[in-house]
């Protein structure tokens, strides 16, 4: 609040005072520069968002933490169970580790493939290609589509042969793959190439490709906006110095884009941690496609109503999510100082 007052309010009061009346800049306890109307307005503008924020974020977060130490089931009695939910989660509940594996895989795949692809597309489109707007639209379309539509589209593509899936029908119809070997893109939980846990099943790879389909377009637009703001003089200077396209990008443009790059990394990490919708639509997060988020929902919000156990998983996800957020915020604050 002190930051708000010193940076936000003080200059505003100076503007008012600029009308000719000399008023002291520092504020006194009994003498305010704000009219009653201003105060009401301010209280509303700060109070309402704060109220919503506290109710929707802080109270619910704290409630989740408290609930994670109980065995509450929405109806009936509940008890404090100490760390039981956490020990169960880490020791005997096999799907927790499947979910951790899948979330990690999601993160690695996005950082190593989807995000770089989005950046690459942005760089290409930034070069004023003929019909660039068309490509831009095509790549961005998946981001605009509603998730229900995405689910329907990919269910149709990825269904097994017996379910008339498009990809399998095409593969077998053209004779590329024998019907007996048609892959089960979504449901296949048999380890890929026979590799044991923690290697991912084919179903997870399919889901990651579907998720990338949206993520690439999202990153592309974010990065493209950043590229547009890069001073063209920098590129010209680099060109005059004899740098080629690649050198210009890596040594001039990329470093200048540092703030955007950080945002992109944070967005990617957060996307990987909060991944939920596509998996939920495609399989409801059942074995072997569990994510931490789907486990929270299927434990806490389904007919199971294991709210205590689901909350414990949610608290774990919260703690993990705080790592990139805190890292980002400390960087931002430090650079501001």
């Amino acid at each position: 609040m002190s930051k708000l007052e010193s940076e936000g309010l003080a200059p505003a009061s100076e503007t008012f005072s600029g009308a000719g009346v000399a008023l002291p800049v520092q504020r006194h306890h009994h003498y305010s520069l704000l009219t009653a109307h201003d105060k009401v307005l301010l209280a509303l503008m700060v109070g309402i968002p704060l109220f919503v924020f506290v109710i929707l974020i802080w109270i619910t977060t704290l409630a989740s933490i408290v609930l994670s130490f109980t065995d509450w089931q929405l109806i009936g009695n509940w008890h404090w169970v100490g760390l039981d939910n956490y020990t169960q989660m880490f020791t005997t509940y096999p799907f927790f580790w499947t979910a951790v594996r899948n979330n990690l895989l999601w993160l690695l795949f996005f950082l190593g493939f989807a995000t770089p692809m989005g950046i690459l597309l942005a760089v290409c489109l930034d070069r004023q290609l003929r019909g660039g707007w068309l490509y831009q639209t095509i790549f961005f379309t998946p981001v605009v589509l509603s998730l229900a539509v995405v689910g329907i589209i990919w269910n149709l593509q990825l269904s097994p042969l017996a379910g008339n899936g498009f990809i399998d029908s095409m593969l077998t119809g053209t004779g590329l793959v024998a019907p007996a070997n048609a892959p089960n893109w979504l449901g296949e939980s048999t380890p890929l190439f026979g590799l044991p846990f923690p290697f991912p099943p084919l179903g997870m790879i399919s889901v990651l490709i579907v998720a990338s389909w949206r993520h690439i377009g999202y990153i592309m637009v974010l990065y493209l906006a950043g590229l547009k703001s890069v001073d063209p003089a920098l590129r010209e200077a680099a060109a005059i110095d004899g740098a080629n396209e690649r050198q210009t990008f890596f040594h001039v443009v990329f470093p200048v884009m540092a703030p955007i790059n950080r945002v992109i990394v944070v967005v990617t990490v957060i996307e990987a941690l909060r991944a939920f919708d596509i998996v939920w639509i495609l399989s409801h997060g059942k074995e072997p496609l569990q994510l931490l988020s789907t486990l929270i929902v299927s434990n806490a919000l389904s007919e199971s109503s294991l709210i205590g156990f689901g909350s414990a998983i949610a608290v774990f996800l919260l703690l993990v999510s705080l790592i990139p957020i805190i890292a980002y915020l400390t960087r931002v604050m430090r650079s501001e100082d």
Binding site: L158, S159, P160, P183, N184, E188
Partner: peptide, 14 residues
């Protein structure tokens, strides 16, 4: 049925 874990009961019925 091959790929049963990716099929709905309706698809198997078909």
């Amino acid at each position: 049925t091959a790929g049963f874990s990716g099929l709905t009961w309706q698809q198997a019925c078909d």
